[in-house]
Structures are given as structure tokens and as C-alpha cells.
Simulated scan of single mutants.
Amino acid sequence: MKSASWQAIVALLLTVAAAATLPLFSAASGRVPSSGMTAILFVLIAASALISLLPQSKTSRATVLFIGAHGGAWLLLSSLAGNEGFAAKPFFLLMAACWLLAWRTVSEIVEIKTSSRADDTALRLLVPAIFGAWILILWETATRGAGIPFVLLPPPSAIAARIVGSLPILRDDVRQTIFKAVLAGYVIGCGAGFAVAILADRVAFLRRGLLPIGNMVSALPMIGVAPIMVMWFGFDWQSKAAVVVIMTFFPMLVNTVAGLAASGPMERDLMQTYASSYWQTLLKLRLPAAMPFIFNALKINSTLALIGAIVAEFFGTPIVGMGFRISTEIGRMNVDMVWAEIAVAALAGSIFYGVVALAERAVTFWHPSIRGG
């Protein structure tokens, strides 16, 4: 037996067990799926599992498994309409079988060898896409199939519908929180931290005095700082940007100071033999060596900035903003809107982090961590 074939075998056994314990939904359900749709569902999952066990190329096997896993999951989720909370054990057995087929799909995709760099990149992106899709599928299955109360955890479909229906509100919230508070605070905080790090590297007194203070400030509770910033800078986005500046300044300072010390003594001695000045050594040796540390701080701050701005909006803001919307809607028990804001924030944070990571690959292409990736 091949190392990955057990998923298909277990999926086949689960399909047989589900067929022996029909129906998919309890007798109290509102709408029973047609026998034709149920037959197609069983045939699709079982046939995909069986065909994947035959000798064939990894690309063909991955394609068959992908169709069986996601086609079966789509049919199962489609059958939930009118049957929320009435899914029986066969329903969950079939969904587990589809999940196992998707698991093996990812295993096959990872082992596919391509001659094109573009194809290899596409396959590498397909793996996390399938993984993320199945988080949503299992989430949808648990909430709608098991009848989890909406107020505790809404299904992804309801969150997506809320996002589509609230695009103007979400657009205004994103503009207020991200394009004003987060970006302004991020640029000012990271820029100031970088500039002070260069100064601290030049003046030993600042380096010895600022770094311990930086560690202390990093431990300050954000919920204590945010109300003070609101009192100082008002209720608009400026106070949230101030919180972001505080949260991003010291990570950039500490990482940059550490990065400036990362160049080796032999390289520094070589620059001295060339009679290089401090600034020549800084620009041509020490800053390039510090770039991995600087980008590490930029990536850390990309998430801290978003969290800081959203939490700061809990303590006073105009009637717009992601933090304001979350605190207001949770009081009204509109949990789907809360989750919509969370989803948009997660998407924005991921894009922000991805842009910084791409810039890191372009700037530090020479670093072993980038060349090895």
C-alpha cells in the first residue's frame, strides 16, 4: 500500500457505512433529498476513491480526488437547505469521506513535479487554497448540519451574505480604520523606530538607555494606552494612529539595532581597510545585513498595527470604523456583521503581510532563507 492510499480506502469504508445507515437526515427534517441526488453522491465519492487506487500519474489521481472530494462536499452542502440541524450520522460520514479525499488530493499535489516555475508556483498556492476551503466547508457542515445556534457561531455562508449586503458600510469602515489610522500609524511608527535605531547605533548612550525602555513599553497593556490616546488626540483616527505608533515603534527599534550588529567582524575589518567612513559602512554593509531583521519587524508590525487600531476604536470613535462596528453590532447580537468585520480585517491583514513579504523577497533575495524557499 502506498503511503497516501489509506485515505481513499478509509473514505470508501465510510461511504459503505453511510449507505448502510441511510437516510442522510432525520425524519423530522423539512426536505428530503431526492433518491437520484443521493445515488449520484454515493457514486461520485466511491468512484473517486476506487479510481484513485488504480495505477496512474499523480496529476490524474489528484484530479480525480479533487473532483470527488469537492463535488461530494458541494452536493452534501446543497442538500442542507431546509434540513439545518437535522443531519444524521450518514451525512457526517460522507463529509468525512470527502475530507479524506481532499487530504489525499493535497498529498498528491505536493509530490507532482513540474518543469515550469509558473506551474510549480500555482501548485504551491493550490495547497493552502484547498486547506482553507476545507476549513470553511467543515465550519459550514458543523454549524448548519449540527444546528449550532446562530448567535454562537454563524455559518460562513451567512457571513458571506452579510459581507455582500453590507459592502458600503464595510468600505467606510476599512477606509477609516486601515487607510487612515493603520497606514498613518504604521508609517510613522516604523519610520521613527528605524531613524532612532540609526541614532542609537551611533550614540552608545541612547542604545543603552532606549532598549530597556523599549522592552518596558512593549509590555504596556494596550487597553490602558488607548483611552489615554483618545483623550490626547480626540475621537477621530488620529488617536488610533497614535496607538499604532506606540505599538510599532519599539519592535522596529529593537530589531533594527539587532540587525545593525549582525554583520561579521571580518566584513567590518575589510571596510576599515578600505578607509570607509561610518556612513559608507552603514549603507554598503550593515544596513544590507540588517534587512532580514528590519523586514521581520515590518511583518510583525503589519499585524500589530491592525490589532491596535481596531482595539483603540473600542474606546471612542466617530460612528464609523471596524472596531466601532464590532463593539456596536455585538451589543445588538448581529453576530454575522461582527464576523463580517473580522473576515474583512483578516483579509486586509493577510494582504498587508503578503505585500511586506513580497518586498522582503525582492530586497533580501540573497539571504539563505529566501534562496532556500
Rank of each mutant, 00 (worst) to 15 (best):
A118P: 00
L76I: 01
T105G: 13
I351Y: 07
V245C: 10
A346D: 06
E140K: 03
A11H: 02
F91H: 14
K299Y: 09
A262R: 13
A8P: 07
L220K: 09
L22G: 15
S52C: 09
R61V: 08
A192F: 13
L304Q: 01
P149L: 10
T177Y: 07
G316Q: 09
I246W: 03
I148C: 08
I159Q: 10
L347Q: 07
L94S: 02
M37H: 14
P154M: 04
L22R: 12
D173A: 15
P227W: 00
A357V: 05
W237M: 03
L206A: 11
I67H: 14
V363Q: 07
A262Y: 06
A345R: 05
Q7H: 06
A122H: 04
G36C: 01
G224Q: 07
G234Q: 08
A160V: 13
L260E: 08
G264F: 00
G185Y: 04
S29D: 05
N334W: 10
L282G: 14
G264V: 04
L50Y: 12
G68Q: 11
A200F: 04
R207Y: 01
K299F: 06
L304C: 01
T256H: 09
E108W: 02
I51Q: 00
A161Y: 03
I40T: 12
T143D: 09
A261F: 02
L183M: 12
L24Y: 10
W232V: 15
Q56H: 11
Q280D: 00
F293V: 01
V203T: 11
L65Y: 00
A345T: 13
F324H: 09
Q176C: 01
Y274V: 08
Q280H: 06
V243G: 10
R286P: 04
V203H: 10
I40M: 14
W103D: 10
R124Q: 12
S78C: 05
L13K: 05
M322K: 06
F66Q: 02
A146F: 13
T328E: 11
W339N: 14
I169L: 11
F352D: 11
A226K: 00
F66K: 02
A129C: 10
L206R: 15
F235D: 07
Q56G: 12
A340D: 04
L77D: 06
L304N: 13
L65K: 00
F91T: 11
A348F: 05
S239K: 03
G191H: 09
F314L: 11
S60E: 09
V10W: 07
I169Y: 11
N301R: 09
R371V: 08
I307E: 06
L41A: 07
I45R: 03
Q272D: 08
P251E: 08
A219L: 02
G373M: 05
S29C: 14
T364P: 04
S327F: 02
P23T: 09
D236M: 01
I188R: 01
I112T: 11
Q272E: 07
V230Y: 00
M229Q: 00
I178M: 06
I228Y: 06
L76Y: 03
